[in-house]
Design a protein around this nucleic acid. Structure first.
Length: 276
DNA sequence: AACTCCTACAACCGCAGAGTT
DNA sequence: TAACTCTGCGGTTGTAGGAGT
């Protein structure tokens, strides 16, 4: 594809996102949807790479992202699915509405793997707990252990994990659709939605992206279902070329205003007046 | 109080695959 | 079919903050 050679790279900012950057990204996406991650930062007034914007949105700002501690049930699901699928985090994330692959990956590496290893050593007292990347357990069992240079015998880890392959598992629904974390615009969060409901819903709505708006730029015809979720005015807007700054929009101003009120809390976006 | 160590998680990087021309 | 862009994925790194000494 021949794309506009608009890849001139301004100084791209890296590192943690500021609340101001978050506000800009949220406001822009709420207004125009997702149409092109690479060009979006420029229109949104962000000195970030498209990749960075996407990551920030997908892993943190997206309204259906569930922040906070993992439940025991979620932990079990991750453990079970990891035993079956390995480190296919995106596939695992599809079974955990509201959780992102990045969250799950981090959670696995920082907590679940350790928990598994502890359980294993309890169940198999003979098994040495070396060969983990768990600095703490290494130290506990080997005073000379160096947490900064954890053992990296992943095959040993895999063996141990295999031991735990779970027979009492909760049911793992089949992966029926790539509808990871679709955004329920009707206002209810996925926390209130069972896996079954999600799968059924996914079959109907077919989308694979949390933001349908982005598909507009691909000449896709919105389904009746999707259309019913949006204000026709929004649908009729041209998402590709925001001719004026989004900051001129009263709509976005109100988003920014409310966001300021709440500092980093974006939960206000769930309020009815901010639903499309 | 000051320092070091450790944990948890946000963010980055490189790569692969899909889509478009 | 080649060339190019965009997106998504998995591995890895950086760092803030808490715990321990």
């Amino acid at each position: 594809m021949v794309r506009s050679g608009k890849q001139e790279k301004l100084a791209v900012k890296k590192g943690p996102w500021s609340s101001d950057e978050d506000r800009k990204l949220i406001a822009y996406i709420k207004k125009y949807g997702i149409w092109n991650w690479n060009q979006m930062p420029e229109f949104a007034g962000l000195s970030r790479s498209g990749k960075s914007c996407r990551l920030r949105w997908v892993n943190y700002l997206r309204p259906d992202v569930k922040l906070g501690n993992f439940t025991e049930e979620e932990d079990q699901t991750i453990i079970n699915m990891h035993a079956n699928l390995g480190s296919r985090w995106s596939a695992i994330a599809k079974q955990l509405p509201g959780r992102t692959d990045n969250q799950i990956k981090n959670h696995w590496h920082t907590r679940l793997k350790k928990r598994l290893l502890v359980k294993t050593s309890v169940a198999n007292p003979g098994a040495k707990s070396q060969g983990t990347d768990d600095g703490k357990s290494i130290q506990e069992n080997s005073p000379a252990g160096n947490a900064k240079e954890p053992a990296t015998d992943t095959s040993e880890v895999s063996k141990l994990e295999g031991l735990l392959h779970v027979e009492n598992s909760i049911n793992i629904p089949p992966i029926l659709s790539p509808s990871c974390g679709h955004w329920d615009f009707r206002g209810s969060t996925q926390e209130n939605t069972s896996s079954t409901e999600i799968i059924e819903d996914s079959d109907q709505i077919f989308w694979t992206q949390p933001f349908l708006m982005g598909n507009l730029s691909m000449d896709s015809q919105p389904s009746a279902y999707i259309q019913s979720q949006f204000d026709p005015l929004i649908w009729s807007q041209e998402p590709l070329s925001p001719s004026s700054s989004f900051l001129d929009s009263g709509y976005c101003d109100s988003i920014l205003f409310n966001y300021s009120e709440k500092d980093d809390d974006v939960s206000f976006l769930e309020r009815p007046e901010f639903q499309f």
